[in-house]
Design a protein around this nucleic acid. Sequence first.
DNA 1: TGAATAGTGTCTATTAGACAATATGCT
DNA 2: AGCATATTGTCTAATAGACACTATTCA
Lengths: 251, 251
Amino acid sequence: MSAEDTQWEPPLVTVTVDLVIFTVRDGALHVLLIDRGIEPYLKYPALPGGYIDKGETLEEAALRELHQETSLDARTLHLEQLRAYSDPQRDPRGRVITVAYLALGPDLPLPVGGSDAAAAYWAPVSDALARQLAFDHAAILRDGLEHARSQLEHTTVAAAFCTEPFTISDLRHIYEAVWGFKLDPSNFRRKVTRTDGFLEPTGQHHLPQTGRPALLYRRGKAATLSPPLLRTSQASILNGNLTDQPPFEGP
Amino acid sequence: MSAEDTQWEPPLVTVTVDLVIFTVRDGALHVLLIDRGIEPYLKYPALPGGYIDKGETLEEAALRELHQETSLDARTLHLEQLRAYSDPQRDPRGRVITVAYLALGPDLPLPVGGSDAAAAYWAPVSDALARQLAFDHAAILRDGLEHARSQLEHTTVAAAFCTEPFTISDLRHIYEAVWGFKLDPSNFRRKVTRTDGFLEPTGQHHLPQTGRPALLYRRGKAATLSPPLLRTSQASILNGNLTDQPPFEGP
DNA sequence: TGAATAGTGTCTATTAGACAATATGCT
DNA sequence: AGCATATTGTCTAATAGACACTATTCA
């Protein structure tokens, strides 16, 4: 580099944060999208986000945007940095680097018409992936989805999707929604109950529409899952999700 | 946000990339450091890095810096983004956001006195962690180390530390240097040889100073390791690294 | 009672850890 | 031969997948 050249000044760039906010509703993974009210990409769906302010960290900016978009207390949400996106052409207005954040939360109240976002709404992730999103948000969404799926293998963040208290079935439905295939209830229960600190029993019961009452739990203190709870290729075969598998040849 | 306010302009920030460059030499993990030649943090050790140029991606900037610091063809190195650091106070000169990259490479030639870096040198990571580094580079180094350790569990990047062709012992020494404890040679061999695409046998042999000749391998095409090769707490107990373990009570 | 969901038990296959045993070069 | 390292094999413990079975509630 040439930081000491007499006349040289480092280039200045605009920095934004973009949020991939996931929740599970009606058994399906949803992502928060807004329809853009301004150019470029007018009326295209996009991830919520905004410029970073002076004097705040990227995480603070992400929390601020999160609060603005969801009107939710950000303390109840899980937030983590995904990565930075820096293609010089990613914004037609000029050089804008964005840092994407992943937020996971329980079934949230529908965001009220935000301050400036034209319209914010929950979209099923399968729909969002199929639509054309503004900027490079399709890639960011794909990365966020893959990161979330991977996080469920190695950490206890799945519980961040649940409203406390919750049942083991609730938790399993989270995994099924995020991973996109069904899990064996018995083996799933064994795994999560034997992982110290994943679940904290409340002693209370939940009465479902029909069937035996289920024990209710709260999130435990453990953050990681070791050994991990892996999505093996087997799981999708054995549970009927054959989308990525070669056809099965019967005997 | 208020992007549409008539007078409002988004704040501009300076963006840098910083590199955590690891290699294994003499059986120990080393990181590339420079001694700063300018204020602030004059004469403090720091991670190599520099400003991003107009029109280049962060990754291109990282590759450019990497080449400048190591004089090495960056194509032989593994490079991946770590995360962004954005504390407004992290640089006393003003608002500078940095994106850290992790680079892994085989035992590299000692970098020649770089263009402007006062002095670049390989430091054992244990030493580097104990020293006071410039800016928030100590935190970046810690994050980079933990990320590298975790990557070795789930991917085949360990082979990026090896000069081809290499033996299974060479590869095991990488794991031992990065993780900081010894592995069972027999079980390690079983794991890596049974992972399809990790190693590609060359048919050639390597003659060690003493002992039976070892088969030589090249990197295979597989990128991930599933199931992963986990560093369990057991491994450190059973191999004599008791730093984080409670004392063993004999019968 | 039967439907529906929660929860338990069990068998088997896979994998990892411990470690013995064998192989092959060198001095 | 004896040493050092590579490589193979074997036993055991832990874990996951498959799935049968029992438990509890309501209609």
